[in-house]
C-alpha cells in the first residue's frame, strides 16, 4: 500500500529536551486534532497517553526530538526520533518500576518507571530501538477500528 496516498493527516512537531514549561504541548495538540477529525474517544485516549508518556520521556532525558504524527484510514502513527543518551538496556526499561529519573523529575510527579510499559499497553504496534549516546527511535501504532480491550472507560456506579 502506498502510504503517501492513504495519509489523511500528517504533522511534524519538534520537542526540546529539558523544556518543562511547554512539556506536553505536542500531545495536547495531537489530541485536539484527533478530536476535530472525529476519532472515537477511546482511541483518542490511548493515543494521548502514549504520546504524552513519550513526550515526557524526551523532555526528561533527550536533547531534542521530532514527532511525526500521521493518520491513515486504519491507524494513527506516532514516530518519535530523539537525539540523546539513548537507553542502555531496553529490556530493563520496559519493566514496570525501573527508572533512572532524578529526584527533580520525581518531584514533578514523574519517573515512576511506568512510561514505556504504559505506552506498550496502550498501543497496538510498538517498536523501540536505541543506541547509547546517540538516541532512541520509537514507533507507536494504534488501530482506529480495533476493539479496545485494555481501555476501560469510566463506568457510572449506581
Amino acid at each position: 500500500m502506498n502510504n503517501e496516498q492513504s495519509l489523511i493527516y500528517n504533522q511534524l512537531f519538534e520537542i526540546k529536551g529539558g523544556n518543562f514549561i511547554d512539556a506536553g504541548s505536542a500531545s495536547v495538540n495531537v489530541k485536539k486534532t484527533l478530536k476535530l477529525i472525529g476519532i472515537p474517544s477511546e482511541i483518542i485516549y490511548r493515543v494521548s497517553i502514549c504520546c504524552y508518556e513519550a513526550e515526557m520521556n524526551i523532555i526528561m532525558y533527550a536533547y531534542r526530538a521530532t514527532l511525526d504524527f500521521s493518520i491513515t484510514p486504519d491507524k494513527i502513527v506516532l514516530k518519535f526520533n530523539d537525539e540523546g543518551p539513548g537507553i542502555k538496556d531496553i529490556e530493563l526499561a520496559m519493566k514496570e518500576g525501573y527508572s533512572t529519573a532524578t529526584s527533580e523529575m520525581r518531584e514533578m510527579g514523574f519517573g515512576a518507571g511506568m512510561g514505556l510499559p504504559n505506552i506498550k499497553m496502550n498501543s497496538d504496534e510498538f517498536y523501540i530501538e536505541s543506541e547509547e549516546n546517540k538516541g532512541t527511535n520509537l514507533f507507536i501504532g494504534i488501530f482506529i477500528d480495533r476493539k479496545t480491550d485494555n481501555h476501560d472507560k469510566s463506568e457510572e456506579i449506581a
Binding site: 506536553g24 500531545s27 504524552y52 514533578m108 510527579g109 514523574f110 512510561g115 504504559n118 472507560k153 469510566s154
Partner: peptide
Amino acid sequence: MSDVLRFGKAETLLLTGITNNQVLQ
C-alpha cells in the same frame, strides 16, 4: 502523575498534592 496515566480512568476527579503545570497537562 505516571501512576495517574497508568492506573487512573478517564473522566475522574483527581486528588493530589502536586501543583505544577504537568497536572494540567
